[in-house]
Design a protein around this nucleic acid. Structure first.
Lengths: 295, 295
DNA sequence: AGCTAGGTTGAGTTTTTCTACACCAAAATA
DNA sequence: TATTTTGGTGTAGAAAAACTCAACCTAGCT
């Protein structure tokens, strides 16, 4: 009685990858983000996998998804597999082009903090080819073909993380504007510039000063720090700046600090390394340059 | 000066799988076979991967391919990854349907040897759902969603292999035909039936008898054992049979052995287990049934 | 009631993957 | 030497997979 069905096919690799990401991150939206696709694509992958397995893998609660207990048990196996695959791809990249290094970081850091350091690095090691990828969110360095990332975080450091500096903020503006500011109260009549990714920095800073209540209510929010900075440079207001990003304008005198207060945030700039990069002999050099002061 | 290129994408998973298979098997054709695609598909996968890595991975020698030394070093990493992925998929299948078992075997075994055993198994363990997949070549049990395979082989046993029986061959025919055969010489005037996958069995058997030179020259070759057997059952000639496959016809008397000679080939029928199956608690039962005599 | 976060759905499109088939070169065979 | 066989390549077209888009749904908030 045994029938002879056609050779059974395994599930699609992309569906498995989507499943692993969704399971690990606990959300289809997050998986979509990690894999750079739309949430709909994840839904479909999971659905084809569920059809293959002939069983549901997630329970859909209108406010998110949860793994079924059955699926729960399988996640570590899949994570191990895709981690190993990531490792293999990293090894391939390294083998093929040992001197090409990809660094992911925030657009603002790429524009205002990195160039000086990378210039120095190029002097010291002209054969290294570092390319910079500007991203809003830190990528998964095990899975993506990227060697290092540089982002602000408050999370405790992992074993592959290196703290570069602490995030310190203070207001800056042109000397012209600064001349109008004698006390904090004067800020009420100025445009407060801010970056949308760190939109409550003004509040943080103000609450560390003599508290003045609702000063921070107004202001213009820019999605890119670079744009907010540009506006400040043209005297368009007072920008809540991050020390690392504005050093050069303070040195040149183009921008000044109208108030002395500096706030140390519990946030740090962290260099995160891919597993392959940890073993690299280029690491010491890169660390030196990034951790040292520019110039 | 660092530009900000778009987010780099990793290589396609399917290309990596094709690479791993081709590298492990040392041939595009073999990889195509394992992945059930045409060789052209493998060529293309490898090419896209080489384009991604910006380096050749194989050297093409008109009589096959060879890994570049660079690629050579990477293969174990990829093999590990896809093995782990195979393991994960096996775990998923097991978790979802613990009682469904897929067994791959030769069409002839599926037709003539297995049914009696599976019938017995169904009596003993009615909840097991064994489905049989007829294949010409043994599948890769780590990668494919198949739990066990049953094939003839001369290779030494691995850790997940169980010898079921040794391959023994002898000629058989209908009693009518046998009546015409008094000595080996008489075979010259008969049609010698054979299976194309074991096409030199006649030679093997004859050379083990008093050698009579070129008897085996002629004969009809059938690609399926079942067809050759059918022909023998209709008195169409003398078939070189495998003991395991014709038991039932000897018992019923429908076919007989015109000569006493039996040749033990150095080939054995081997039950190969997937890594998941090795750990299964159903194994003892299945082993019992398959290794025991039918009825 | 309206808003939001997170997921779903289905149509339509793009990309990937595959096959078919002609072709090529070396090696094996005759 | 001619011929066949083996294993890979190239291209066009077809099939399948993967993705996006935009509308929609639902539960929890405000």
């Amino acid at each position: 009685m045994p029938v002879s069905p056609p050779r059974p096919k395994g599930p699609h690799l992309n569906a498995l990858r989507a499943f692993e990401a969704a399971a690990r991150l606990g959300s289809f939206a997050a998986a979509a983000e990690e894999l750079s696709v739309t949430p709909g694509a994840i839904t479909q992958h999971i659905k084809t996998l569920e059809a293959w397995a002939e069983t549901p893998l997630f329970t859909r609660n209108a406010r998110g998804v949860a793994l079924t207990p059955m699926a729960e048990a399988l996640v570590p196996e899949f994570t191990r597999a895709f981690d190993q695959l990531g490792l293999a791809v990293h090894a391939l990249r390294k083998q093929v082009a040992p001197n090409k290094i990809k660094l992911a970081t925030l657009p603002s850091l790429a524009q205002y903090w990195l160039p000086a350091r990378l210039g120095k690095l190029r002097q010291i090691a002209p054969d290294l080819q570092v390319s910079v990828i500007a991203l809003e969110e830190p990528p998964n360095l095990v899975r993506e073909p990227i060697d290092m990332s540089l982002f602000f975080t408050s999370d405790p450091l992992g074993p592959n993380d290196i703290e570069v500096l602490r995030d310190r903020i203070f207001p800056i503006c042109t000397p012209d504007v600064a001349a109008r500011l004698t006390c904090l109260e004067d800020l009420r009549s100025e445009t407060l510039l801010r970056d949308s990714t760190w939109s409550d920095d003004w509040e943080h800073w103000l609450s560390a000063q003599t508290d003045l209540g609702g000063i921070a209510s107004g202001g213009t929010e820019h999605s890119l720090f670079a744009v907010a900075l540009e506006e400040a440079r043209h005297g368009g207001g007072v920008l809540m700046a991050h020390e690392a990003l504005v050093q050069r304008f303070l040195v040149s005198g183009e921008l000044v600090r109208p108030f002395a207060g500096i706030v140390d945030l519990p946030r740090k700039l962290v260099l995160h390394l891919s597993p392959e990069m940890v073993r690299s002999d280029q690491l010491a050099l890169i660390k030196d340059v990034l951790l040292g002061s520019a110039q």
